[in-house]
């Protein structure tokens, strides 16, 4: 009996080498709670090729290209103020274009080269807070934020996303183009502009 089990262990060790350890002892349990359907966290930076609709990788690639291009031009000398204007979605897909701008803004803010002011969409919350501080009568006089002290943006970012879709039933080709422009608000001039092109092809 003993010799036989010994032989078995030796055989196992020989056949599978190092992995024999894991096969002979039970694996340790990971700290997860899981049901039938397998769910896993994935690499948030992985190339997403599930469908050829606008996806996470496209968003990341656009944001990276735009921030890289903005940072290397050196237009942000002296930490100017910038605001986000509109991003037109001219595709036929429901794409949250504000999300692309959010990614760009995050990276630019983290670079420390630029200051952002409230965008039009973020204005209401700011106005509400100012009114609460100044008109509710709840706060100490000197501690309230003064109305009329906001810094206006020197530059504004305007973008648009377009797409060309060709589909013949078996092959679908989608071409995306994201264009971003930075205007000098006072002068109305374009101070910087870049675009990112993406082609995605899928076969059915």
């Amino acid at each position: 009996m003993l010799t036989r089990s010994h032989l078995l262990v030796m055989l196992l060790a020989l056949s599978s080498g190092l992995t024999a350890c894991s096969s002979s002892t039970p694996p340790v349990a990971s700290p997860v709670l899981r049901f039938d359907r397998e769910v896993n966290y994935g690499d948030d930076k992985a190339v997403e090729l599930v469908t050829n609709e606008f996806g996470s990788t496209d968003l990341q690639m656009i944001a990276e290209k735009m921030t890289g291009s903005l940072l290397e031009t050196g237009i942000f000398q002296g930490r100017p103020t910038v605001t986000i204007s509109t991003v037109k979605n001219k595709t036929s897909e429901y794409i949250d274009t504000t999300n692309i701008m959010n990614s760009i803004q995050t990276t630019l803010v983290k670079s420390g080269k630029v200051r952002f002011t409230r965008s039009i969409n973020e204005m209401q919350a700011g106005v509400d807070e100012l009114q609460r501080q100044n008109q509710s009568g709840l706060y100490k006089q000197h501690s309230t934020a003064k109305i009329g002290k906001m810094t206006a943006a020197k530059y504004s970012l305007e973008g648009e996303l377009t797409s060309i879709v060709k589909d013949n039933g078996s092959t679908k080709d989608v071409f995306y183009k994201f264009t971003l422009k930075m205007f000098d608000v006072e002068e109305g001039t374009i101070e910087w502009q870049d675009e990112k092109q993406i082609r995605k092809t899928s076969k059915r």
């Binding site: 690499d43 930076k45 992985a46 190339v47 090729l49 996470s56 990788t57 990276e64 990276t107 983290k110």
Partner: peptide, 9 residues
Amino acid sequence: VGDGESWKQ
């Protein structure tokens, strides 16, 4: 530095 870039194909 930073979050890391996305993978590109």
